[in-house]
């Protein structure tokens, strides 16, 4: 019965939406039924599923690349001392630039297609992962290190059995944040610089004033984002059970 309040609230929201649409009686605010019907149509006969697949594929490629680069570069930065800190400072200069601001350059460099979307997703996900990995490896709890030292553990054993597992919760948290940002960056990139995908489809529906299609796209983005967050939390519980709530 834990789901009851959620379901009740969702029903209320739908009711409110329906009433607002009925009262407005405007093509710019279709009601839930119209949007559901449009969604069914688009899924059966339209490009909805191929757009979903295109967006998910781009997130997978960009996020995987960002995760690999973030973990490897983050570990390297933590391991090589002064040069690592210099690299981190340099990357800190690039971090405040929102991924969407890279879109014009991405289009110039990679054209309107998958590679430029991969690039934007990569930028969105890379920074939180990289920063969390460097921080996590730098702040191993000193009392665990002291324990290892009191046992005379070799540096290799300390790295594998103490430093890396101690860093894992923060690394996984960085991956989770990175996944969320990858998804939002992708949609932003598709709105202006793609020819398929959910973001692109929303833009197309807007141009021909099919508000139902715009809303179908938005709801899909929300649902997929929530599903990914759920997946990430499950993965966290599996990977770092000692820190997950």
């Amino acid at each position: 019965m834990r789901a009851l309040p959620t379901l009740l609230l969702a029903a209320l929201a739908l009711l409110g939406w329906g009433l607002a649409a009925w009262w407005a009686a405007s093509p710019t605010l279709p009601g839930p039924w119209a949007v559901a019907a449009a969604g069914w149509m688009l899924a059966r006969e339209g490009p909805l599923l191929s757009d979903l697949a295109a967006s998910l594929g781009r997130v997978s490629v960009g996020f995987t690349a960002a995760a690999l680069a973030g973990v490897l570069l983050g570990a390297a930065s933590a391991a090589i001392g002064r040069w690592g800190r210099a690299l981190r400072r340099l990357l800190e200069l690039l971090r405040p630039i929102p991924p969407i601001a890279w879109v014009p350059l991405a289009i110039l460099w990679f054209g309107l297609g998958d590679p430029s979307a991969w690039f934007i997703v990569f930028l969105g996900a890379f920074f939180p992962i990289y920063i969390q990995v460097t921080l996590a490896l730098a702040d191993c709890p000193p009392h665990y290190l002291e324990l290892a030292r009191s046992l005379g553990a070799r540096p290799g054993l300390v790295l594998w059995r103490v430093r890396l597992p101690a860093a894992m919760p923060q690394v996984v948290a960085g991956l989770r944040t990175g996944l969320g940002l990858a998804w939002t960056s992708l949609i932003a990139a598709e709105l202006v610089g793609a020819q398929s995908g959910l973001g692109y489809r929303i833009q197309m529906h807007r141009l021909v004033l099919e508000t139902e299609g715009v809303m179908v796209g938005m709801l899909c983005i929300g649902l997929l984002g929530a599903a990914m967050a759920l997946l990430a939390r499950g993965l966290e519980r599996w990977l770092v059970p000692w820190s997950a709530p």
Binding site: L151, A153, R154, L157, R161, P165, W242
Partner: peptide, 22 residues
Amino acid sequence: FQDPRLLPWMSLRANLDFALEA
């Protein structure tokens, strides 16, 4: 130590084995 300092990512047995391995 005053606090038990068991490594939270290992079972009790693995904690003992870690000390023996070290």
